[in-house]
Nucleic acid binder design. Structure first.
Lengths: 405, 405
DNA sequence: GGGATTTTGTTCGATCACAAAACTATTGTA
DNA sequence: TACAATAGTTTTGTGATCGAACAAAATCCC
């Protein structure tokens, strides 16, 4: 039950009914393919005639296509329908502190090409490099005509409407308009989103399981701790685009110093830096202070490797992270009551070591039995969730519910 | 941008466009009355002919009515339109630990009658008493035909779909089907919701300011600490109806014992009991353990009165609550990035004493400048937010956006 | 082998609702 | 009094669902 915003609404036109039903058909095909017209009519409780005419539009438009005829126990055989995703392409860009990744993929998220280069921190130079590389990738793969957009994922706060990066401490950017610059360069629509929210989009649109209702939180444990919140199938962006910052929920006012200035933030317990600092027995140090590299070369992957090879102190450091992870997740689960929580980031490489500990922490903090039982699902490593999210940025608008009322 | 849930969608029918536009018209009248047909046509960028026909339907239906003609600089004078709220009535019921309130009000939330009685904890007896009293109130005010429903507000977790109270520690109820029992008794539709969510609904539908987008959190500080979350004009209920439980977000693992079993929960610092216990210098004691009254008769109102009359220890106790309130609100603001936060509960009676302290705590914890500047708005005392929420439960479905796609 | 049956997909007329423009009503101004 | 401006209604046209009829294609049954 939504209240209509009388300052920003969309009234229904003559074609609104068709737009709605067309999107529903498209999504039904997407999730149930192969599927026949008659099947769609049954699922939608609508006449087959209407389905015929909608399907015809979608075929002309090129979003779905007819495949082989299926089999029926009796009667005429159905012609099966499929969503066209293989030759609809998108460029996904993931700008990270160390490297920038560019992937060419289709609308289903299948990787076609992938390259990376050392991140250039000057926005103008970075855009130049990006435009050049994107053009080359498209040309190499004969995809110049078939690419429908570029998805840009950035660490930091983003305003997707204006396309500006409002603030990215990692890149030392403030109010940088990178989207329009790239769009001008490549001549394609460009979409931009911050990293955790993009991961959440990837999970929603390209994730394995079809989640009824799509109520979940995607938590990324990396240099920082961020999250993307999806409620009722909608990404929650907040009033000024900064929702999901659970990283600085306080766990202990006397806890370790956090880079944000406060003490005992969740991030100060669970970020990769926090885990490493705990292992080294020292305080957290800012990752980047005027482009200076972090003072230790020990990575979280190294630490996990040490833990696996029997380093007790490494095991203890990682287990402690697991415990605080669980406690923090408890807070999230109590606050938002999602149907599940996804966890991404390098720490998932040690999931078998910490899963029980995470669940124990969650149990301690969860208020209801339902909340305590919330599935915590680690993202499989090497799946490039940010890049998949960038692809989803391009693909999702073609499948989302039309805005109405 | 919402993903369509293919397991639970609503396709468009022949009349969907009209339903959408009718609701938009209704809401435009509601927020801009008095308003003319021509004015509506301009605001909606639609032909006046369509408005004429929609308005005719709404007048026949009885939701709006024509008032006096307005004034125009030149040309024919417009006939002004109004939403009919004065003689559309609702019964609002607020079941609390100590007393149960019944209010008869119109759809605008204006109080017509109000009574209360000592809460009966046995569900069957309570329903009996409620049905009897509701019938009597309706008869007394000649409202038997004009009342369109009953709104029931309950402390604890509720499933509004099945109408069951899943768990209410305060009332010691577990899986009690009170809604259908009351509905059978009074012969009217009955809606049920938990207290903080109902307060949020009251703010959204009957609040003072028209908030663009309606992104806010309503925090109630009472015996417990709960909240109702409204994002994009939608109440967030969560996967199993328990969203908004910020009360048990941990502030300090070594903090005071909370009634939930954990230590250092936000609630253990800011609930009325917590403030009183802090003043008395003792541990928190369960409010209700087999219907036993709390061991002290000192109320939070008494404490505020003592603070005002110069009791330094009372001032300190309340100020400490204010500080923790601010810290907790910082977490909420970071997590959800609402455009504003409303605070309800008895503590708002001391708002002038703690406002600065609350803001200071918020500033310490807020990550972004925008988040730190989030307005914190105390609910004015004596406004019966829960009862207004109960009224909103009945009225809102008539004004909400139609469910589509 | 051939008709009956069943299922799929298309077509067509009826109805609902927006779109656009003509038309009527009413008011103020030159 | 004629004219312009504004409000509200009516009419005609078009897009879309609704429902039923119809053709196409496969299996079942005799």
């Amino acid at each position: 039950m939504r209240k209509i915003d009388t300052r920003d609404f969309r009234r229904a036109t003559r074609t609104t009914s068709r737009e709605i039903n067309r999107r529903i058909v498209l999504n039904l095909v997407r999730e149930h393919q192969p599927v026949s017209r008659a099947d769609l009519a049954r699922r939608m409780e609508i006449g087959r005639g209407v389905v015929t005419s909608i399907i015809q539009e979608l075929i002309v438009e090129g979003t779905i296509y007819e495949g082989a005829t299926g089999h029926a126990a009796r009667g005429r055989r159905p012609t099966m329908l499929y969503v066209r995703t293989q030759d609809r392409l998108a460029i996904a860009v993931d700008i990270r502190f160390s490297r920038t990744f560019i992937m060419l993929s289709d609308f289903a998220g299948t990787q076609i090409a992938l390259e990376s280069f050392e991140t250039i921190f000057d926005p103008t130079e970075l855009v130049e490099e990006l435009v050049e590389r994107i053009a080359r990738i498209l040309a190499t793969h004969g995809a110049t005509g078939r690419c429908e957009g570029v998805g840009l994922v950035v660490p930091g706060m983003v305003d997707p409407d204006s396309g500006r990066v409002l603030n990215s401490p990692q890149l030392a950017w403030r109010d940088v308009d990178i989207r329009d610059a790239v769009a001008d360069g490549v001549g394609l629509p460009v979409y931009i989103e911050n990293a955790p929210m993009a991961c959440a989009l990837a999970q929603m649109w390209l994730g394995q399981r079809g989640n009824s209702g799509d109520n979940f939180v995607y938590v990324t444990i990396s240099d920082g701790v961020g999250s993307g919140i999806v409620l009722n199938g909608q990404l929650i962006r907040g009033y000024s685009n900064s929702a999901g910052e659970f990283g600085h929920v306080p766990l202990d006012p006397n806890g370790p110093q956090c880079l944000c200035g406060a003490r005992g933030c969740w991030e100060a317990y669970t970020s990769n830096q926090a885990t490493i600092s705990r292992y080294l027995g020292r305080e957290l140090v800012p990752l980047r202070e005027g482009a200076v590299h972090p003072p230790t070369t020990l990575t979280i992957e190294d630490l996990i490797a040490r833990a696996r090879s029997g380093d007790d102190r490494a095991v203890a450091a990682i287990e402690a992270t697991g415990r605080y992870l669980g406690i923090g997740l408890g807070g999230i689960v109590n606050a938002l009551n999602p149907s599940q929580v996804f966890v991404g980031g390098e720490i998932t490489g040690a999931w078998d070591l910490i899963e029980q500990i995470v669940r124990k922490g969650l149990h301690e903090r969860a208020l209801t039995r339902a909340a305590a039982a919330t599935p915590i699902i680690p993202e499989q490593l090497g799946g490039y969730p940010r890049l998949r999210g960038a692809t989803a940025l391009v693909a999702a608008p073609h499948f989302a519910a039309p805005r109405v009322a």
